[in-house]
């Protein structure tokens, strides 16, 4: 009887141990980005004050390459927003760190278009880029997602 229990326990312990190992392995895998990530490069800002679109100067964006973006700001009905002040930050939500550089607007290209330089992403994975836009309608923010 006691023999039987021991054997049965043994029989159970093998798959349980294997599953545990498998489970840990899965938990430790590089986290994939969320499945429903909005990867669009044009969208309304958080409060709907503006529409922002971005055009990375590198396609596809590669890990570690410094490059610039053109940012376009319009009113919700599509008129260009000039003389907006734009600041850029971002990072990797799953890694808890920011951008490796401090990008900045280097030129006002006119017609609501702004040149942002100093963009760089030094790891593969999910990145967010946040733009803070301050224009005639007031301050607003918008977040773009990228997967490298």
């Amino acid at each position: 009887m006691s023999n039987l229990i021991t054997r049965r326990r043994l029989l159970w312990s093998v798959p349980v141990a294997l599953l545990a190992v498998g489970g840990i392995a899965v938990a430790k895998m590089m986290q994939p980005p969320p499945a429903d990530l909005d990867l669009s490069l044009a969208k309304p800002t958080e409060q709907g004050l503006y529409t922002a679109s971005v055009e990375p100067g590198l396609s596809p964006i590669t890990v570690g390459t410094m490059h610039g973006w053109v940012v376009q700001i319009t009113t919700p009905d599509g008129r260009p927003v000039d003389q907006a002040s734009i600041t850029v930050d971002g990072g990797m939500p799953q890694h808890g760190h920011g951008l490796p550089t401090e990008p900045d607007v280097s030129a006002d290209l006119g017609a609501g278009r702004y040149q942002v330089d100093g963009m760089k992403f030094n790891m593969p994975g999910w990145w967010v880029v946040n733009l803070s836009v301050d224009g005639p309608a007031g301050p607003d923010t918008v977040t773009f997602n990228l997967v490298l």
Partner: peptide
Amino acid sequence: GKGECTKCHNGPLLTDN
């Protein structure tokens, strides 16, 4: 994969510099 080495050791030189 699991080792997550390419977070930092990426690209053909295996460093993100």
